[in-house]
């Protein structure tokens, strides 16, 4: 086989991916970008609007509120989730657990539950009158807090997302732990380091790239939060409004308000926010490495 033929066969192998990437990703992206420069009215039809949609979006308080809300969500929920995942991964890796396989599967299992099913289930558990917590409170004579109320909704959502994704992040971290060369541990043992010291000085530093990967995934996941608030909205319509998260806002603009073009602009701006936040996360952590 000549090198040229080898090069060509490379393209053939990549084609299925490229075709899907083009058809299902780049093309819709381009089309949405195109749409965002127009304005379609119920009366008057479609006109070219230039950057009007973007100008409206940057000064839209509902969008800004949503972005700030998911930023707060990210700042609180992601550290908790990654800590849970880290502790679980270290525990399995330590070899001290009795039923490590069962534990690993147990922590990972929620990720296999579709987020819609998970949210419906938690929505029932949170139920203000007939949820288990509320009923327990009723039995014991205290008033259970309304988990679907104004004050606790973001925490209730964080709990669902943590439950869903801690196991997924644990698997990434656990896989990274398995790649650490064993001679490091042997050397540490010779130097008299105990399991805590090994975890702190060898394992956690070695996990840095994997943690960063998890962090970037979490940035994207948090800012695109949609299914969970969309479903809980049915249970708490006066707490979760149509602009609770930016994606929920884009959805309601497109399908309720029939403002597809403005929704496209909002989606594009949200994408931009995610790029910027991801970049900041990468920048800050790479500065940490140099130090």
């Amino acid at each position: 086989m000549t090198t040229r033929a080898a090069r060509n066969s490379g393209y053939v192998f990549v084609t299925p991916f490229l075709a899907c990437f083009l058809l299902l990703f780049l093309l819709p992206l381009g089309y949405a970008g195109y749409l965002s420069f127009f304005k379609d009215q119920l009366v008057g039809g479609t006109v070219f609007a230039g950057l009007d949609n973007y100008v409206r979006a940057v000064s839209d308080p509902q969008l800004l509120d949503g972005v700030l809300r998911v930023a707060l969500f990210f700042a609180v929920q992601v550290p908790v989730m990654l800590l849970v995942a880290l502790v679980a991964a270290l525990a399995i890796d330590s070899g001290l657990l009795r039923f490590a396989r069962v534990f690993r599967l147990g922590v990972f299992l929620p990720y296999a539950v579709p987020s819609v099913v998970a949210t419906l289930m938690w929505g029932y558990l949170y139920g203000p009158d007939f949820g288990p917590l509320a009923q327990l409170g009723d039995r014991l004579g205290f008033e259970a807090p309304n988990l679907l109320g104004n004050g606790l909704m973001l925490s209730a959502l964080s709990n669902i997302v943590t439950w869903e994704f801690a196991g997924y992040n644990m698997i990434i971290l656990y896989a990274a732990l398995r790649t650490i060369p064993t001679d490091l541990f042997e050397a540490a043992a010779v130097d008299g380091a105990g399991p805590w010291r090994v975890a702190w000085s060898i394992k956690i530093p070695a996990l840095r790239p994997a943690l960063l990967l998890c962090l970037i995934f979490s940035v994207i996941g948090s800012f695109q939060l949609f299914a969970e608030p969309d479903l809980l909205q049915r249970l708490a319509p006066s707490v979760i409004d149509s602009a609770y998260t930016p994606n929920l806002y884009a959805y309601s603009l497109a399908f309720i308000s029939q403002e597809t073009n403005y929704a496209a602009a909002v989606s594009f701006l949200l994408g931009l926010v995610i790029v910027v936040v991801s970049y900041v996360v990468l920048y800050v952590s790479s500065r940490g490495t140099r130090r």
Binding site: G127, P128, D129, F130, R234, A236
Partner: peptide
């Protein structure tokens, strides 16, 4: 003022 057509409402 509970939301209607939910499990909670049916049980109500």
């Amino acid at each position: 003022t509970d939301p209607d057509f939910t499990d909670n409402w049916f049980q109500g």
